[in-house]
Amino acid sequence: MTDELRVVRAGFAPIKGTRHLAYDRVELDAQGAVGDRGLALVSVDPADPARGRVLRTVQNPSLVAVRAEVVGDGLDVALPDGQTASAEPVATGESITCDYWGREVELELVDGPHAELFSTWLDRPVRLARARRGDVVFAGSVSVVATASLRDLAERTGQEALEAARFRPNLVVETDEPYAEDTWLGREVRVGGATLRIGVPIPRCAVIDLHPETGERDVRVLKTLATHRPLNRAGEPAFGVFAEVVTPGVVG
């Protein structure tokens, strides 16, 4: 028998590193949440040591303050200062092989007004690029965080609550016992119209110390996690779990 989990939030960011948004309806296919990190920003400045790399949130925290949303075939981007760009990204026929956390990923460069907007915001020349479905996922296709674990961590950090978006999960599921999800390895669960197989814990980095709307460092969540959670070989504490899609479907 497959257990059912109640989803209280579903979301993703269409451009890697931008604000994580909640949606009323999220489609899950074999590669995860449709639209999740389908686009990424890459540096094109020959003088930039990071040229040829997908921009990382931890090194570009101001990306979190940018709201990006796919509307139909178009991409709407809004900066905190009021600047906006709305257009359909158009493939240029060019591709670029980029480093994505030590893994080579081939991206398709796209044109539109978004690159200029991001270049101004980041104060460095960047291009917008499209990834093939699944290319930006390096462990599990869906990220899952549980409500009881969020409540426990908020208490440990001295906060009334911690925003789920801080952890950028595809799904937030309701639980009663903190970190019960650690025991779900290999378990199949229903979420809306989809079925998932729960995988390994998610290692966390300093991105979770960023406010999920401004990108400013505010709460020392990572240090708190490291005091009571399992660490991987890199010293990263676990929070939440990855999952693979067994049966595609819609959540919401």
Rank of each mutant, 00 (worst) to 15 (best):
M1V: 10
V8W: 13
R9M: 10
A10V: 10
F12A: 01
K16M: 09
T18D: 03
R25Y: 06
L28D: 01
D29M: 07
G32D: 04
A33W: 03
A40G: 06
A47C: 14
D48Y: 05
R56C: 03
S62E: 09
V64E: 00
A65E: 03
R67D: 03
G74V: 15
P80M: 10
D81Q: 11
A85Y: 07
S86T: 13
P89M: 00
A91D: 11
I96N: 05
I96L: 07
D99P: 00
G102V: 08
G102A: 09
H114F: 06
S119T: 11
T120H: 08
W121S: 06
R124C: 04
R124P: 10
L128E: 04
R133L: 08
V136H: 01
V137Q: 05
V137G: 09
F138W: 08
F138N: 09
A139D: 08
G140T: 14
S143P: 15
V144P: 01
V144S: 00
A148E: 03
D152R: 13
A154E: 04
L162W: 00
N170L: 06
V172S: 01
V173M: 04
T175C: 04
E181P: 00
T183R: 08
V191A: 00
G193R: 14
G193F: 08
G193W: 11
T195N: 01
T195C: 06
P203V: 12
A206I: 09
A206T: 07
V207D: 03
L210F: 15
H211C: 14
G215S: 07
R217T: 12
D218K: 15
T224K: 09
A234F: 10
P237M: 14
P237Q: 12
V245F: 03
V245E: 01
P248V: 15
V250E: 08
V250D: 02
